[in-house]
Simulated assay, not measured.
Amino acid sequence: MKIKIILAEDDSDFGMILKQYLELEDFEVVWFQNPQDITEILKSDFSFHIGILDIMMPHIDGFSLAKMILKEKPEFPILFLTAKNQKIDRLTGLKIGADDYISKPCDPEELILRIKNILKRTLPTTAETQIKIGNYFLDTEKLLLSHKDGNIRLTIREQQLLLYLLKHNQKTIKRDDILNNLWETNDYFTGRSLDVFISRLRKYFINDPEIKIQSLRGIGFEIDFPTN
């Protein structure tokens, strides 16, 4: 299967270089200089595996475009390109549900590595697709967390973190281990991103007091998911 990438980048020189480099790595790249063109295909021919979106674009910025895509395709992985190393950019992207970000000008080899790492996490099939977690059920194929009071559509990153926590159920997990295994890096921004996702999971499981994700200051988290 050839991986199909949607690239939203209004800079013609950088976009062309990036497209050519990705194609050398045997990716199929559809490049849009006008992000408005992407919105027209969202409900029709949208057969992409990952999106690379520049944050600073005319007409529609990368954050707004990501929200539009994720509204129609909640499971779609997104990597942001940003020319600014500002915390607000990165945290905004993470709150939207993006999987990663990289600053421009970026090292092409680092970009390829980040893309492959995201795909490695998002493309593999899982033998067990229905997992009982307390009063909830997780459908790993649909990224759907179900409860009698309603359903929650997870992002890919949220499900990855939840599955990692389930794998280490009733154990103490170090923050560094989570960051190195899921984000493959450990810095301030990824640490903040982990806190955002942990906070979301706690809210999702609010209807079952038996489910506990406790923070251990300076260590990590203590997990207790009743699975029977």
Rank of each mutant, 00 (worst) to 15 (best):
K167A: 07
D139L: 11
K212D: 12
L143C: 05
L154P: 04
K203T: 15
I213Y: 07
E158Y: 06
L163W: 00
I211K: 00
I152A: 04
T190Q: 05
K212N: 09
K212L: 14
D195F: 01
L162I: 15
L182F: 08
K174L: 15
V196D: 14
K142D: 10
R157S: 08
V196R: 09
R157W: 06
R202V: 00
I213A: 08
F205E: 05
Y136W: 02
F189T: 11
G150W: 10
D187C: 00
I206N: 12
Y204H: 14
R153H: 05
L138S: 06
T172F: 02
L182H: 09
N207D: 10
T140G: 04
D177C: 10
G150A: 09
L162A: 13
N181Q: 12
Y164P: 05
R192Y: 02
L163G: 00
I213W: 03
L194S: 11
I206E: 13
E210H: 08
D177Q: 15
I198V: 11
E184Q: 15
L145W: 03
E158P: 04
R175K: 04
F197C: 10
L161K: 13
D149P: 06
R202L: 01
G134H: 08
T185L: 06
N207H: 13
Q214N: 13
Y164E: 05
Q159M: 09
L194P: 07
T190P: 02
E158F: 07
I178T: 09
N207G: 04
F137R: 11
I213S: 07
L144D: 10
P209F: 07
D208R: 13
N181V: 12
D195N: 04
I173A: 06
K167F: 01
Q159I: 02
L162M: 14
K167P: 03
N135M: 12
T140H: 10
D208E: 13
R202D: 00
L138V: 11
I198P: 02
Q159P: 02
K203Y: 13
I152D: 06
I213L: 12
E141P: 02
R200F: 04
L166H: 05
I173P: 06
K174A: 14
T155E: 00
K174S: 14
K148V: 00
I152W: 04
Q160N: 11
K167T: 07
F205R: 04
L138P: 08
L163T: 01
T190N: 08
K142S: 11
R157L: 12
I211M: 03
L194F: 06
I211R: 01
S146I: 07
K174M: 14
K148A: 00
K142V: 03
R157N: 11
S199Q: 13
P209Q: 07
E141Y: 10
Y164L: 07
L162K: 13
Y204E: 10
H168T: 01
K167L: 07
L162G: 14
V196F: 09
D208C: 14
N135Q: 15
K142R: 14
H168M: 01
L144G: 10
Q214W: 06
